[in-house]
Design a protein around this nucleic acid. Structure first.
Length: 401
RNA sequence: GGAGGAAUGGUCGAGUGGUUAAAGGCAGCAGGCUGUAAACCUGCCGACGGUGUCGUCUACGUAGGUUCGAAUCCUACUUCCUCCA
């Protein structure tokens, strides 16, 4: 089976350009692929994993791979499929984000070339750019792009700043093509319009053929996996602990497990089907192991897994994270539970803690707390106490010496 | 250039002077049942607060104004839509 067919069989391809030529080039290893990332946050999140996996597969297949930091384009903000303008980030923030993200990519893929589109976008001369590049784009076609459809149909404002985004991304592709011979761009399914524009642009500029692939959206329970609000799972372990990262995959809905194993592992399909059918929980551990190892390494994965098994399967509270509570937090040898919850990180604020207590989700030493003004006295710490939120989050609290 | 309409919380969408922190849906969080799953049932869901069914603050495009009181009325501005030129 050739590479493209294999990718298809793994459901890793959503859309692609010129299939037969692309496949040929892949087999001849004459592909140089690039993946771009916006720098809107200080860490990558799980939504980036699938495109990175493709880049990694291509790289291991012998194709040159480029990871492009969108330091220039992030200053514009990709409007693709969005309903509102993004907030603008300062140059310093964007730069800082790049510095945080680079080590993450380093860990995920070897032999990748880094580029930063600020290097060529920030110093362009406007008139030259419009004459050279802008003249090649048809507004008539651009307004019909899926990318802008949402905005235009719903009458949401779309500024020229954002409208120019596909042009800049196309220019990136052209630039990489010129300097690295890059001829394949990969991206999420929302990138199709941007990618296809780049392919057309390069064709116009150089008559050369280039290719594009988009990936399917990751689903959660049949719905789009939201990376918004409470749901973001970050690759940075300071933002999402390794344990929580492992737990996230361990808790996937049954209906998604086959798809995730197919996309993220090399396990033969038959074997996956078998696992899902006969031991769904082992299958979930498999996917958790696989992805956590990739992102955080074997060692940390092993620890997270052991901890999970110890806590959830063996009910062994000794494995819990320990929080050392400072003496100063007590007044009259007592501490309010709401304050304690905030201290140990189970709540964002006293109000939040109260809400949680009201929801019957807070336990102390496995006893449900019903009173919002509950107080823990110092004597209770003769031994450790275990504070729980829901049935999945528990923290062991001891007095600091 | 002219006439009219619209802008509501993460999102969609009610609400046209006061019991409105603002109906309802979706998303999210939590509890029950389970398998650390789904479905289903229930609760929470602007923020903060030493803890009351109470207080403070913030919020209905932006900035002012009228009023004891405004998401609701007035003025200006911004953006979008429709029609006329």
């Amino acid at each position: 089976m050739n590479l493209l067919n294999w990718l298809e069989s793994r459901k890793l391809i959503y859309q692609k350009t010129n299939e037969s030529n692309l496949s040929d080039q892949l087999e001849k290893k004459q592909i140089c692929a690039y993946l771009g990332a916006d720098l809107t946050a200080s860490s990558l999140h799980i939504g980036h994993l699938l495109p990175l996996r493709i880049l990694k597969i291509l790289s291991e297949h012998g194709c040159k791979s480029i990871f492009l930091f969108g330091r220039g384009t992030t200053m514009i903000g990709d409007p693709s499929l969005r309903t509102k303008e993004r907030p603008m980030l300062s140059q310093e923030e964007i730069y800082q984000n790049m510095n945080n993200i680079k080590p993450q990519v380093d860990k995920l893929i070897k032999n990748v070339i880094y580029e930063d589109n600020a290097n060529w976008l920030l110093n362009t001369n406007l008139i030259d750019f419009l004459r050279e590049v802008g003249s090649k784009f048809s507004v008539n076609q651009m307004v019909n792009l899926e990318t802008f459809k949402n905005r235009i149909e719903n009458n949401n404002p779309l500024s020229f700043l954002e409208f120019s985004y596909p042009i800049l991304q196309s220019y990136d592709f052209y630039h990489l093509n010129k300097n690295h011979g890059c001829n394949l761009q990969i991206g999420g399914s929302d990138q199709w319009g941007n990618i296809i524009n780049g392919v057309h642009f390069i064709k116009k500029m150089t008559s050369k053929e280039t290719y594009g692939i988009t990936l399917p959206l990751l689903l959660k329970g049949g719905k789009k996996m939201g990376k918004s609000v409470g749901g973001a799972i970050w690759l940075d372990e300071k933002q999402t602990s390794v344990f929580d990262f492992w737990q996230f995959w361990r808790n996937l809905p049954d209906s998604d497990v086959e798809d995730y194993l197919l996309k993220f592992t090399d396990i033969p399909h038959e074997e996956i089907k078998d696992m899902v059918k006969n031991s769904i929980n082992d299958a979930k551990k498999k996917i958790a192991d696989y992805l956590t190892s990739w992102v955080h390494g074997e060692e940390k994965t092993k620890n997270a897994k052991e901890k999970s098994i110890s806590i959830f399967e063996n009910k062994n509270m000794n494995s819990l994270d320990e929080f050392k509570l400072d003496d100063k937090q007590f007044s009259n040898s007592e501490i309010k539970l709401t304050k304690l919850l905030v201290e140990i990180g189970l709540s964002d604020s006293a109000s939040d803690a109260k809400r949680k207590i009201k929801n019957n989700s807070i336990t102390v030493n496995s006893e449900l707390i019903e009173k919002q003004d509950a107080v823990i006295s110092k004597n209770d710490f003769d031994s450790e106490i275990i504070v729980g939120h829901g049935k999945k989050k528990k923290i062991k609290v001891v007095l600091a010496k």
